[in-house]
Nucleic acid binder design. Structure first.
Lengths: 187, 187
DNA sequence: GTCCTCATGTAACGGGTTACATGATTCT
DNA sequence: AGAATCATGTAACCCGTTACATGAGGAC
């Protein structure tokens, strides 16, 4: 099965909001989509060129006032069609490699205390991320996006929050299971 | 930051349980670790060779009785040392690209009904996975692993279950938010 | 003068999957 | 005979990141 990259659809999707440059796209991905998506310049710029070759976007150069020139891309009718088709196809289920579970599975090679520290550490990291999500909602209010988009935005944040909370609960549960009940239990 | 692959550590970890062949490793990954990890032959076999070159594992050929010969690998003292060092380093936080959120974010391009179907579809897929997890626990009982490993195994399954339940709850929440008013809907 | 941001790009590299090749044995 | 499983492997390819190059303008 030939895995087709979603990069082109991210681009088409963002251009369906408004015309923008590759640089703008990168910034938008890094802010609005950061908690569930990422794109690098190394894929963005070449993909933009390919999309233009295929006639799904078109570009024009906008002279920069006290700034470098920008290449602003705009989605075409064909591009919108392509985007709609993709939107109608069922989304793949998320698939993650979870390193902490790998380490946990091989825990017998080190003292239990080591693994407990690992999980505590992981929990701390997750808590940090969660705090970011929680602060996000306020940011959305001030984003200036239209209300419909804000509603969708909040849903994506909620997803991040719920999944992270679940992961944190798992850490708590794992710590409960692993931690020796009594302090006298030293062996 | 040079991303080092975890493949070598999966191999070392599994060989720390008992000596086995590349084929065995693949099967074990596909059964015991499948819900949070994956490895392909295309990485497994070359990595095994590299590990042997580095002296972290050693191999011997075992004649197959009514089966093809097998190359059975065994972890060395140096290999165990390497594994322990890796186990002590903090685990990376899991990072996923969530396609459904991407599609949701661009929902304005298609009728709301389309997105609702997408989420229902996603929910169905997640439910299916969840059922597999739930069935797993029974499988562990009959696995023949030692009790300590069983306990760890169950923790990894619990992780999958908790995260999937969270994702399903998000689908429910999203459907509630998106679905137009009230319509004598059957579920 | 130096550093930061804006802006576009590319080369090199590593990670990882897929598809294929090979060949033995066992089951139907 | 044909299919399935056991077993080892490799080449081609895609995905994606990182690091670098280039150059303009603004901030300190």
């Amino acid at each position: 099965m030939p895995r087709t990259s979603s990069t082109q659809f991210v681009i088409l999707g963002l251009l369906s909001l408004e015309p923008m440059s590759g640089y703008d796209i990168k910034k938008l991905v890094d802010s609005a989509l950061a908690h569930f998506w990422s794109e690098s310049y190394g894929r963005l710029y070449p993909t933009l060129k390919k999309l233009e070759e295929k006639g799904l976007v078109k570009s024009r150069v906008v002279k920069g006032i006290r700034k470098p020139d920008r290449i602003v891309y705009q989605i075409t009718a064909a591009g919108r069609k392509e985007l709609k088709q993709w939107l109608q196809k069922p989304a793949a289920l998320p698939w993650v490699r979870v390193e902490i579970l790998l380490k946990l599975f091989f825990a017998h090679n080190v003292p239990l205390e080591t693994i407990i520290e690992l999980i505590k550490d992981q929990r701390k990291g997750l808590k940090g991320k969660l705090a970011v999500f929680t602060g996000f909602d306020r940011m959305v209010d001030e984003s200036g996006y239209d209300p419909d988009l804000q509603r969708l935005y909040r849903l994506t944040i909620m997803h991040g929050r719920m999944v992270h909370e679940a992961r944190i609960r798992w850490c708590d549960e794992a710590l409960r299971v692993l931690q020796p009940k009594k302090k006298e239990d030293e062996k």
